[in-house]
């Protein structure tokens, strides 16, 4: 079959072969029985809305360059149309848009198999039965194959993220300066579809100045940026999960000059009686209204020692 067609023809034939296998496979799973073939002209006689733009769609352009597919492009994705011609109901034609993960994307990835789809089968979208047609429309002209522009397309399902993006501190997605795909790969990424599995690496790709390594470290930076920041939006400044100093007090005790609370939450008489007046509710108020980063500004790490000897220079004040 392919002895005389090497080079570019070989690729075409391979594509046809793969498409045939895919269509057959999907047909076995969920399509009506194959019964005869029909050409594009027959299909477009009824589906004139598709025919209007067909020649200017990516698929239309691709098929026109391949003689073997030129006249039967519709069946490449929709399977044999003979039975649909006899009884033109939706049940009698394969529609990849209506298939789940056991169907449609197997068909699409037969051709769309470049490295950007390497992780598709492991992706959260694929696992959630989001098929290609959920976001793409294959009958639209070049440049218009997304059902909607992002981020609106993403917000259709991720409406809670849209709400977060409207909080006072946010990445500039709603302003159009960033898109969801700057951090997320809709075709892959096993953890929240992110471009990189590690939250640190993803964030440092733009915020490289915070990666270090530093002489004086802040341990949560080594763990995950998500300890302190929430990426989509927050009430607190700088995408912090909570405002200062509440956030810092999740891990750190209050400053020693402020006040000290014991394990069971009761106020204690301080160790030095002459300073007993400091351990009061006013001390609480003071510490809760001061931002830690007013003095400890280098929270992501620093090479410069801070002033107090007793902290070993590790107070991240400069």
């Amino acid at each position: 079959m392919s002895s005389s067609s090497r080079g570019s023809n070989r690729l075409i034939l391979l594509s046809i072969g793969l498409l045939t296998v895919a269509v057959a496979a999907i047909g076995l799973i969920s399509s009506p029985a194959v019964a005869g073939t029909v050409d594009n002209e027959t299909c477009l006689a009824c589906h004139d809305d598709v025919g209007e733009n067909y020649a200017m769609t990516p698929h239309g352009i691709y098929f026109q360059q391949r003689p073997a597919l030129r006249d039967y492009g519709c069946e490449s994705c929709h399977g044999s149309g003979g039975r649909h011609i006899e009884d033109p109901t939706p049940d009698n034609i394969l529609n990849p848009a209506n298939s789940d993960q056991f169907g449609s994307s197997i068909l699409c990835t037969q051709c769309h198999n470049t490295e950007q789809f390497d992780e598709w089968e492991f992706s959260a979208h694929h696992n959630a039965d989001i098929n290609c047609a959920s976001c793409h429309t294959s009958h639209a002209k070049v440049g218009h194959t997304m059902k909607k522009p992002t981020p609106e397309l993403c917000y259709d399902c991720h409406s809670a993220v849209k709400a977060e993006m409207n909080l006072p501190s946010h990445h500039p997605v709603r302003e159009g300066e960033m898109s969801c795909s700057d951090c997320h790969n809709p075709h892959g990424g096993s953890v929240s579809l992110t471009m990189d599995d590690s939250g640190r690496e993803l964030c440092f790709s733009c915020h490289a100045e915070k990666e270090g390594p530093f002489v004086y470290e802040h341990a949560p930076v080594s763990e995950d940026c998500g300890y302190c920041h929430t990426p989509h939006g927050s009430v607190a400044n700088n995408l912090l999960t909570q405002n200062e100093p509440t956030l810092c007090l999740n891990c750190h005790s209050m400053h020693f000059h402020a006040t000290v609370v014991s394990v069971d939450g009761e106020f204690e008489v301080p160790q030095a009686p002459e300073r007993a007046s400091r351990s009061t509710e006013d001390g609480w108020k003071r510490v809760m209204l001061t931002k830690c980063t007013q003095c400890h500004g280098a929270v992501h790490g620093s090479d410069l020692p801070s002033q107090a000897t007793s902290t070993g220079g590790n107070a991240l004040t400069r």
């Binding site: 927050s234 909570q242 209050m254 809760m288």
Partner: peptide, 16 residues
């Protein structure tokens, strides 16, 4: 968003 945090030290004054 409705939420509540409780902890002996982590008083959630501004958690939104």
């Amino acid at each position: 968003y409705m939420g509540k945090s409780r902890g002996p030290v982590t008083v959630a004054l501004f958690d939104g």
